[in-house]
Design a binder for these strands. Sequence first.
DNA 1: TTGACAATCCAAAACGTTTTCGGTAGTTTA
DNA 2: TAAACTACCGAAAACGTTTTGGATTGTCAA
Lengths: 334, 334
Amino acid sequence: MPVTIRDVARAAGVSITTVSRAFNGYDDVGPDTRKRILKVAKELNYRPSHVARSLVLQQTQNVGLLISDFNANRGAHHFLFDVMAGVHDRLASLGYDVTLVSTTTARQRLVSYIDFCTERRLEGVIVMGMRLDDPYMQEVAEAKLPSVGIDLPILSRYCGYVMTDNVNGAKLGMQHLLSKGHRRIGFVNGHQKAAVSVDRMRGYQLALETAGIDSDPDLIVHSNFLVEGGEAATELLLSRAPDITAIFYASDLMALGGMRYLHRVGKRIPEDVAVVGYDNVDVAEWSTPALTTVSQRRFEMGVYAADMLIGMLQRDEEPGGRLLPSELVVRQST
Amino acid sequence: MPVTIRDVARAAGVSITTVSRAFNGYDDVGPDTRKRILKVAKELNYRPSHVARSLVLQQTQNVGLLISDFNANRGAHHFLFDVMAGVHDRLASLGYDVTLVSTTTARQRLVSYIDFCTERRLEGVIVMGMRLDDPYMQEVAEAKLPSVGIDLPILSRYCGYVMTDNVNGAKLGMQHLLSKGHRRIGFVNGHQKAAVSVDRMRGYQLALETAGIDSDPDLIVHSNFLVEGGEAATELLLSRAPDITAIFYASDLMALGGMRYLHRVGKRIPEDVAVVGYDNVDVAEWSTPALTTVSQRRFEMGVYAADMLIGMLQRDEEPGGRLLPSELVVRQST
DNA sequence: TTGACAATCCAAAACGTTTTCGGTAGTTTA
DNA sequence: TAAACTACCGAAAACGTTTTGGATTGTCAA
């Protein structure tokens, strides 16, 4: 049904070899024949088949964008969307196609992640939203498929990663609170199986340490990065340590949930309790009071991840771990 | 480099024909040979090439997910992400691959949307985030490529769409305000080139009409669906008609911006001005006061769009226009 | 006049599958 | 015992490209 290179060749009165060469800009085709071929091709509405070309060239120009359990991670769109945009933007501008892959789907179809990718001859993968205990973590690390994790510190011959400098980010947030005179600071972290959580925990501890304050386990609670989780965590935190004057949250959404709870129990922000979030998502700016937070450059994370992958693919570069700087954004909640 | 069907055939001592049949579950291959082939294939780590198969079968099992200017539309993630999840979820579970496509990228690469799709032999496309005056609108409508628009009323032999019943949705929001006794109701609509805007405008007018209220052009202003736009629009609205007691926004984000402005100028919500949004995004629930809004079932929109496309692809069904019901979610802003 | 050398072009193989059309045994039926 | 049938398997063509290794001109220098 679709018009092939053979149709063009026939219509232009040349061989398919010549059509191919005309299209790919080789110089051993006469200027008039070239013009004729191009004209005929346009008339016939010829589009070279990407799949035939992939087959003979043995490369698809196609990379996967793997989002762990896309469906269940919908609440994370505040973070994920921009990263996706960054990844796609860079990859597309370099001529790569991006196919969406989700692990759950793969699981449903009883195909492992690596099977999925090699079957479609994906040349590389960018992985996001994954937990450290996810079974696919190991698959990614062991596969010989070039891949780069976002917020996933996997490092091997074929795996690199990009993430924000979370320990410094957490330190920034904490130092800000410490500089405001707070001494009893609660910490609502993300779930323990998120790579960022362990780093942010370290930043929290480090900041306390250098301020000469002993860490109190009662002041630390783990949650799920989402609003409801932050709400519940804050309630728990306040029941355990009613004397805290500030809370540091590992995500803006949890901070929002926390502020909602604080508001409900009549605490004023920042007078009674100061609040710092993490991510600097758009919502942080809209809340009342506007949320002080540690920013992550999400779009850039995607771009850099794409760049690292391209480096591996096109220039055979060794992957590495790239840490983006964090920045403190001070607003009214502190 | 990758192991092919020929390698498996050689290792198993059979022809490639037999390997192919064994893999595709044909019944004319002996039970013992089949077992042997499968064992050998597993040992060699054989994965059939999706691209070779696509070439011979003349179908790719691949559909495009076209997001108009992905990059610039990042602010719309509150709406888009869930739809994407719905689309991907359904499509993936039916064995289709999903390729991300963005028109800007295409434009950069000087390849038209339709070229992009036919080159990759995409079997269909789901289109979202597009404006009515977008040049690609016509391309989509004229192309013989099965496609379904989300919030885009394009209808042809190959084009269907799914959108929320926006005129009824707007009517619901307005009727709610009218039932609370409001008579001077401002309307902050989205930009005029969005399909949903014209429907919501109609719903607004209809509601006024049946309530016997004349529509006042001073009470209507167009904006861009985003927070800052809503803020500016509200300022304009109040300057033109200081006597309004309620505002209906065509998106939750604009409503949020509006509430921010109202708060700043000392108006109480809902006592001085009642506010209704549109979309029921997660943020609507978190704001203070929580936002009354008209809900859209975003995930389902994606699922239904996928279903419609599959219907065309697999059962040659005629596309149509599917309208999802809207629902009013009453919270504290009214 | 002839050999070399551009300038153009083409036939055929290759990429990794699926599928059509047979072919060869062995087994049953008449 | 021959014919028909079953069960299993393979050779080869096809899908739409790219690329290798010439082939055919014509031109120019010797």
